[in-house]
Design a protein around this nucleic acid. Structure first.
Length: 112
DNA sequence: ATAATGACAAGAA
DNA sequence: CTTCTTGCCATTA
């Protein structure tokens, strides 16, 4: 092991993002932007896109379906897999062709 | 150092 | 509702 990989394999930034994602209550969701804002207070870095990059790489380690975009949706492929979870968790959402989460009811603010 | 790429966001039309 | 434009910032080539 090199001198910096143990602390480097994830990085504190990714750690914080995943921690917050793991704390989102079932039946509720948080957004990339909200998480990014919270992590920015602690680290001074990152943005919604950066959080997205972390989720793309490590999302499978946490309840990724509870992290959605500001519109309450996810890209086509992921949304298909997320709907069953939202349903079983009773997450407030619309019905129809392209279902999306009702952010006003299901939105959750990351705890610092 | 520049350029292209994303599980994004907000505003304009 | 959709599509387009700008801004965003870490990562990768």
């Amino acid at each position: 092991m090199g001198p910096d990989d143990a602390a480097e394999d994830l990085g504190e930034y990714a750690e914080l993002v995943l921690d917050m994602a793991a704390k989102i209550p079932a039946g509720q969701v948080s957004s990339y932007g909200a998480i990014a804002a919270a992590v920015r207070v602690l680290t001074g870095r990152g943005s919604a896109r950066t959080v997205g990059a972390v989720m793309a790489r490590h999302g499978d380690e946490v309840p990724w379906w509870r992290v959605v975009n500001a519109k309450g949706t996810l890209p086509e492929h992921l949304r298909t897999r997320a709907v069953p979870h939202w349903r079983s968790e009773g997450t407030p959402m619309t019905r129809g062709e392209s279902p999306h989460v009702n952010m006003r009811e299901a939105g959750w603010s990351p705890q610092l």
